[in-house]
Simulated assay, not measured.
Amino acid sequence: MAAAAKGNRGGRPKGIDDDMLAFAFALRGGGVEVSGIAKKLTIKTGKNARKSPSVACLYRAMAAAA
């Protein structure tokens, strides 16, 4: 409860942020395959920082945003 009062939220950080998602939609509109888009993106924070997101993660993020 004290952590929430300070503005801290628990849980794992998002793998794909809003900027990455906008870039992914722009590439997808240009006809790039989702697997190619995933290779061009890089996760910024968390355990998987500096790695590409999985194709499944990208599909989930794009479906949630649509």
Results as ranks from 00 to 15, higher is better:
Met1Trp: 01
Ala2Ile: 12
Ala2Met: 08
Ala2Leu: 12
Ala3His: 01
Ala3Thr: 03
Ala3Pro: 02
Ala4Ser: 13
Ala4Thr: 13
Ala5Thr: 11
Ala5Pro: 01
Ala5Gln: 14
Gly7Val: 04
Asn8Asp: 10
Asn8Trp: 08
Arg9Pro: 05
Arg9Leu: 12
Gly10His: 10
Gly11Asp: 08
Gly11Gln: 03
Arg12Ala: 05
Arg12Tyr: 02
Pro13Phe: 09
Lys14Val: 08
Lys14Ser: 12
Lys14Tyr: 07
Gly15Cys: 04
Gly15Phe: 01
Ile16Met: 03
Ile16Leu: 10
Asp17Asn: 15
Asp17Gln: 09
Asp18Tyr: 09
Asp18Glu: 15
Asp19Gln: 04
Asp19Pro: 01
Asp19Gly: 06
Met20Ala: 08
Met20Leu: 08
Met20His: 05
Leu21Gln: 05
Leu21His: 03
Ala22Tyr: 09
Ala22Gln: 02
Ala24His: 01
Phe25Gln: 01
Phe25Leu: 00
Phe25Cys: 00
Phe25Ser: 00
Phe25Asp: 00
Ala26Arg: 10
Ala26Pro: 01
Ala26Lys: 15
Ala26Thr: 11
Ala26Gly: 15
Leu27Trp: 02
Arg28Cys: 11
Gly29Leu: 05
Gly30Thr: 13
Gly30Ile: 02
Gly30Trp: 06
Gly30Pro: 07
Gly31Gln: 15
Gly31His: 09
Val32Tyr: 03
Val32Leu: 03
Glu33Ile: 09
Val34Pro: 04
Val34Trp: 10
Val34His: 12
Ser35Asn: 13
Ser35Arg: 15
Ile37Asn: 00
Ala38Leu: 06
Ala38Cys: 12
Lys39Val: 12
Lys40Gln: 14
Lys40Glu: 15
Leu41Asp: 04
Leu41Gly: 00
Ile43Leu: 14
Ile43Gln: 10
Ile43Ala: 10
Ile43Lys: 14
Lys44Cys: 04
Thr45Asn: 12
Thr45Glu: 12
Gly46Pro: 02
Gly46Tyr: 05
Gly46Ala: 07
Gly46Ile: 06
Gly46Cys: 08
Lys47Glu: 10
Lys47Phe: 12
Asn48Asp: 05
Asn48Trp: 01
Asn48Arg: 05
Asn48Gln: 09
Ala49Glu: 13
Ala49Gln: 15
Arg50Phe: 11
Lys51Asn: 07
Ser52Glu: 11
Ser52Trp: 02
Pro53Ile: 03
Pro53Ser: 07
Ser54His: 14
Val55Arg: 11
Cys57Gly: 12
Cys57Gln: 15
Leu58Tyr: 06
Leu58Trp: 13
Arg60Ile: 02
Ala61Ser: 14
Ala61Pro: 01
Met62Pro: 07
Met62Val: 11
Ala63Arg: 14
Ala63Gly: 05
Ala63Thr: 14
Ala63Asn: 15
Ala64Ser: 10
Ala64Asp: 09
Ala64Met: 14
Ala65His: 14
Ala66Asp: 09
Ala66Ile: 05
Ala66Ser: 14
Ala66Arg: 15
